[in-house]
Write a protein that binds this DNA or RNA. Structure first.
Lengths: 235, 235
DNA sequence: AATCCTGTTTAACTTATTTTAACCCTGTTT
DNA sequence: AAACAGGGTTAAAATAAGTTAAACAGGATT
């Protein structure tokens, strides 16, 4: 847990008061310190003061919509995980959210278990990323040991040095191990931008990382078409 | 270590009273003598009086920000370890902090375990550096024995004398053994400045140190591109 | 005054890193 | 199956960073 105050602090920005209160109560029951705001402007004012560990933002809100709010939040603290709530399951919306820096999205109405699961996964990821950057974190990837701080990978009788971007991307893949790392998330976090050129650049780095890992036949760095990459370790 | 309490004395400069108090309580629980100040001016006044072993400074504060405070503190006592707290994870900030003389930084929100870990590591390093300069400390580097005070290195049937800067740099590398000594930290501590020319000058000294150590094939003085140097001893 | 020691500066050179471009392949959609 | 967007791989270009030798300067030593 990344806070010193005990409970994990969650912000909900949702203009539908009914729905918002139900959500707030549900999450409060699961030991979260939940704060509900009715529009983007209000939510952003509060965000600047309180230290939130996670934000759940409705895409459609008056005054400042979820996308605009997310952009402002990411500008203040680019590490806070953000989950978008969207009524439509339209793919366009999800992609736009990811480009802005969303870490996940969920469509209304939703399964409350799934939301809890996503919250846990996101908080865990956010924590692992913080550790990977600050501490001496060693990721074990099949027969390799990868140190994200020293930017070294050793295994199969050799040790190699990784460049900063190579190391950052591999660390992200490790955080999402066996799960999909969405392209947009990686581009946002490492390149701070998501356009045609940074995307092609990322492809080049994927190839490089595949080369570093090629000695272990149990490791695969799979592409999920139109979505992202998945680092899979068989056992 | 404080003479009266026997405890290590830590200064926190943080304008967010809420966050500051929580942090203070948390560190107090871990046997530190913690003093909290709300702005840079107040913190600096107190620094001049009490002997602090470590300072944790928020970058963004009213009246005097963390960077300005750090500069004043370093001018008074260049050996006190400083940790910067920064909300943004922006690399620019970290680099600026290092250039001013930070020994480490941590981005908010952070894992409290990581902070404790960093405090311990820094206090340990700071102590070793003081000893290396004032006392007779012998560092063992592979097959060599290096005395930082006498500035001698012996091994493989010969003894050589090091110049003051050579010895200072090697001592720093020893303190950070197997870990990265960031360029900025070395430049700040030894050259008291960080610009293009002192950086090139440091590179020259790295070459000189490599020559002193070349007889032992288990010793490597590795560059970590864009970051610093790592003295690695294989065994 | 000549010499040595130390550290600084310069500059030519080498290597690392990232971006861009080219060309080809693979799923997806109509 | 044709058209197209997304992805894979490699090489080249562009930039950034690090290495090294050698010339230089200033103070200390002989």
């Amino acid at each position: 847990m990344s806070i010193l105050t005990g409970k994990t602090k969650i912000m909900i920005a949702e203009d539908d008061t009914n729905f918002g209160l139900v959500l707030k109560d549900y999450l409060s029951l699961h030991e979260y310190d939940v704060h509900l705001y009715r529009d983007g402007r209000q939510a952003f004012d509060k965000f600047e003061k309180g230290k939130f560990n996670l934000c759940i933002l409705d895409v459609m809100m008056p005054i400042m919509d979820g996308f605009a709010l997310a952009e402002n939040i990411k500008a203040k603290d680019s590490n806070v995980p953000i989950i978008f709530l969207t009524a439509k399951s339209m793919k366009v919306d999800m992609i736009r959210g990811f480009k802005i820096g969303a870490d996940d999205y969920i469509t209304k109405p939703f399964d409350s278990e799934i939301l809890l699961f996503k919250i846990k996964a996101l908080l865990n990821r956010s924590e692992t990323i913080v550790k990977a950057v600050n501490e001496q974190v060693e990721f074990v990837i099949g027969g390799f040991k990868f140190n994200s701080r020293l930017r070294t990978i050793q295994g199969f009788g050799k040790e190699e040095k990784l460049s900063p971007k190579e190391a950052a991307l591999l660390a992200l893949l490790c955080v999402y191990l066996n799960d999909i790392l969405p392209r947009e998330v990686a581009l946002r976090k490492i390149w701070n931008d998501d356009n045609y050129f940074t995307a092609r650049s990322m492809d080049v780095f994927i190839t490089k990382i595949r080369k570093y890992l090629k000695d272990d036949p149990n490791i695969e760095l799979l592409n999920v078409h139109g979505n992202g990459y998945r680092l899979v370790v068989k056992d």
